[in-house]
Design a protein around this nucleic acid. Structure first.
Lengths: 186, 186
DNA sequence: AATTTCATGTAACCAGTTACATGATTCA
DNA sequence: TGAATCATGTAACTGGTTACATGAAATT
């Protein structure tokens, strides 16, 4: 009871709505035009999600001034919505998240600017990198143990997974260093 | 009508059953213990999937000899199942698949040994690599065009995507070269 | 006037998740 | 005997997909 579940799609929408108000249509466009991190472009996912979020009090409808006579309903993140967004973004990351929710973790990062502090974003990257390295270590052990008995394509697929996680770890390191350099204070 | 849809999970199970008979429990274990490519370990996904596959004639129950008195029902891929598996694995790959079904493509590859010929597997890798390079090209263009207006974390997330696809492309090249070298004939 | 784009919905469906439930077999 | 593992199920739920449907505003 009371523990209202919020889906990843809802957080994605909430993240966009925390920056500035959007209509359902605009949100849909944003999601579709991003070449990464895919959600379906069908209205059948966005509009029901918006209704759910509204019921939960995460977003509130807004009148968009005289911007254009189209856009019937603009939404913005409510204070409760921002709070929920922050809570989602600052959840401690576990090994399980790396394996099962990698994309969700990346989404958290992608939307974090303006919501989290520089320090919190850096902390996220450190956690991300650490968990990735641990998981890569496990994968290498698993590879050593089981590769001999595997099919060649199975083994290659496993190596692909290791490569991918390594690319992520390297990226996290680079991203962290870049963030540490730029905006040196404040 | 007649166009029986088969989910990715079902193909994963079918791929395992094409190698050798398994019980539902064994399949579940196989899926869970693989550190990559995740499906849930709950019986609520495997057993209904097996029933669906059985209805479709993709698998047939088998008596596992006197291996052990446990395992009540072993399944194996039927000829129709093998045919469906081959058809799935040899589907031409599109750019869309790279973006929306990357994991499915990898699963196709991982299970392909013993089902596809060496030439077909190599062809898959070439298609994979080609599509990845095209997509990476698009992402770089998109990055150049939109990066200035993006948030730093958004831009970094996009770069993460590019890195990941690049890692996949490099892997595909290495895998292809390895397969071309070993087993030099036959 | 016709077409395209903007803009929002909803109804049906379905696979996968969660949780609950059961019973047999092996092991301590 | 009791616990852990093997082994298979099912009922309820839910979010996302597909497809259908509508209408207004802008563009041609």
């Amino acid at each position: 009871m009371g523990a209202t579940w919020t889906s990843v799609l809802e957080f994605a929408l909430l993240g966009l709505l925390a920056r500035r108000p959007h209509s359902g249509y605009e949100l849909r466009r944003q999601l579709v035009e991003t070449p990464l991190k895919h959600f379906s472009d069908s209205p059948g996912s966005i509009y029901p999600a918006l209704r759910r979020m509204r019921r939960k009090g995460l977003i509130t409808p807004t009148r968009g001034g005289a911007a254009s006579r189209r856009c019937k309903t603009l939404f913005r993140a409510s204070p409760a919505g921002r709070k929920a967004l922050r809570a989602w973004m600052t959840q401690p990351m576990t090994r399980v998240d790396i394996v099962w929710s990698l994309n969700e973790m990346k989404l958290r990062f992608a939307l974090s600017e303006g919501i989290l502090s520089r320090g919190e974003i850096l902390h996220f990257l450190k956690e991300f990198e650490g968990n990735l390295h641990e998981h890569i270590g496990d994968l290498i052990v698993y590879h050593k143990l089981t590769a001999p008995g595997m099919s060649v394509t199975g083994r290659l697929a496993l190596e692909n997974g290791i490569d991918e996680f390594r690319a992520n770890a390297r990226w996290a390191g680079r991203a962290r260093r870049r963030l540490e350099l730029e905006k040196p204070d404040r």
